[in-house]
Design a protein around this nucleic acid. Sequence first.
DNA 1: TTGAAAGCGCTAACAC
DNA 2: GTGTTAGCGCTTTCAA
Lengths: 340, 340
Amino acid sequence: MATRAEVAKLAGVSEATVSYVITGNRKISIPVQKRVQKAMDKLGYRPNRMAQALAGGKSRVIALLFPTAARGVAHVDLEYGLGAAQAAQDLGYHLVMWPTLDRSVQEVIATAKSGLLDGVILMEVALHDERVEQLKDVGIAVGLIGRTATEFGDEVFADRDFDTAAHTALNYIAGLGHKEVAFLTEKTRGKPVVVAALTRTKQAMKAAGKLYGVNVKNFESTTDPDDGAKLLAPILDEIPKITAVISLNPGAMVGLLQETNSRGISVPGRLSLLSMATPESFVSATSPRLTTISPPAYEMGDSAARRLIAHLEGTGVENLPPQLWAGELVVRETTGPAQA
Amino acid sequence: MATRAEVAKLAGVSEATVSYVITGNRKISIPVQKRVQKAMDKLGYRPNRMAQALAGGKSRVIALLFPTAARGVAHVDLEYGLGAAQAAQDLGYHLVMWPTLDRSVQEVIATAKSGLLDGVILMEVALHDERVEQLKDVGIAVGLIGRTATEFGDEVFADRDFDTAAHTALNYIAGLGHKEVAFLTEKTRGKPVVVAALTRTKQAMKAAGKLYGVNVKNFESTTDPDDGAKLLAPILDEIPKITAVISLNPGAMVGLLQETNSRGISVPGRLSLLSMATPESFVSATSPRLTTISPPAYEMGDSAARRLIAHLEGTGVENLPPQLWAGELVVRETTGPAQA
DNA sequence: TTGAAAGCGCTAACAC
DNA sequence: GTGTTAGCGCTTTCAA
């Protein structure tokens, strides 16, 4: 682990010059650059990040908060994390995994104050998410996967494009002749927070339903597949006109699908099933395989990280990936024409 | 962001004394301890981690390498990561997510040399895993989820107890009257590495098969569910005596299950299915739900991290969680008595 | 039982 | 275009 002093000596320049060659923050003559570069290569020099962080006041480390309580951790969270971690790495940053049981940001704040963390990425964002204020109040940069009620202010985020997703879903479903659709969401009574995505999707589905002449009725369930299964009877018996189910609740959706299988109800003959929140890797386990229009989690994680880092560095917002992602409709085996 | 100097001043002691109160590396009189503590509380003092790292030569940061190429990233990897991250946090460490496309450790080594990383946790360990040597050669501490061929040397790892897992599986299967069993593994021809778990499980299954009087025949497939599906015909037609399938290949297993569904083959009537590698969160998506005996990934991640950190700190190995984990048999809907 | 002080390896302001 | 130097906030040795 060569130090800057050794490089400077070998290159016959001052230590500062070595630093300036690295950062490019100063004009250095080509010959000197070459000499310094050669010395660094020969010594296998890497600047000490801890010294950089101490002297420069930034660690180039960000944290990704995993809310582990809410509903267990979903696979989609891993994909957010992978996208964000890869982006961070590409930009010379690092991403630490930060599991939180209770959505408390106490400890992250303390750690940021200790100089380890330059910023934080939040998931499962609520419309009015106090974590955002708490973090910003103490000067910690915040990036969101999701977004609060703030209407496109200065928030740093990547989120789903709920309107487009809802339109895509209902356009497709209406095109198959479905007129009466159940919309399956997560039960939030008694929950400490309502994730903004839920509210936004509900609104978007309502609007899109009107647009495409589809009657959308909301059903709620926990994320437990067994609870989803219990919804099949009410949907089919009480409201026989319903021929399709669109779900924002992946757990309930797979339960519902299992129940159709075990009760011998034809999917998609009697009932079409479309999931708006099931990661692809999960789909392979369902049978028949779910038609989905799911968020591109890896890309959203990438976008959130790049945006947060751009914010930290004061870089412009050109050349950044999109903020809003609709997700692609992937037609598989659970959707088909409405029955006559 | 109070500094140590401010604390020292407020407490009326030297800066060194503040440090010693924190680390406990020196005997400090009770009254002084109290004064320092009070000053720290009042100022909300947190030692600067970058300064600690620079002066102390350790960052208290470890990385978890996610091999993203091999087979996509599995959900089980998230659980390893969560367990490891939580353990790290509990011990005052932090865990950075490190996606790697190609199992190269070049970049991690460079980053460790830069002082950011004290150690590394590896997954998908091969019997002869060159990464381990490469890292150790440059003095980076290594922890494994899995293990190499080294017979219980000084390796720091948490791994499955393949023998117990195989015994549990075959004892259960034999108890149901199955005599001829297919063992489904991942095809490794052309793969750059063979994960040690595969070799070890094959051996363990062979031995356990003998013990319980079960004939175990190995089948291979990629992890693509479609490939798994294609295995159903050979298994049933060519070797009709087979009445159960045990799988170490979760992708192929769900494909097989889907194929039984679509071909109307009764599970577990005609064929019992037991997965040795499907995380619980995944099981809820299968129908019928898979019987599993899967590795306790969260706990294994926790164990690997705690062991690595104990190694870094030179702490003893008492009070550490187990190295070997068999996993619990969870009987669900895909296993039953062998047909007559 | 406590204090003083020499680093740790950088960044960046200042000087030439 | 390059060098000098004062920190950044700690750990730890040496001295008292």
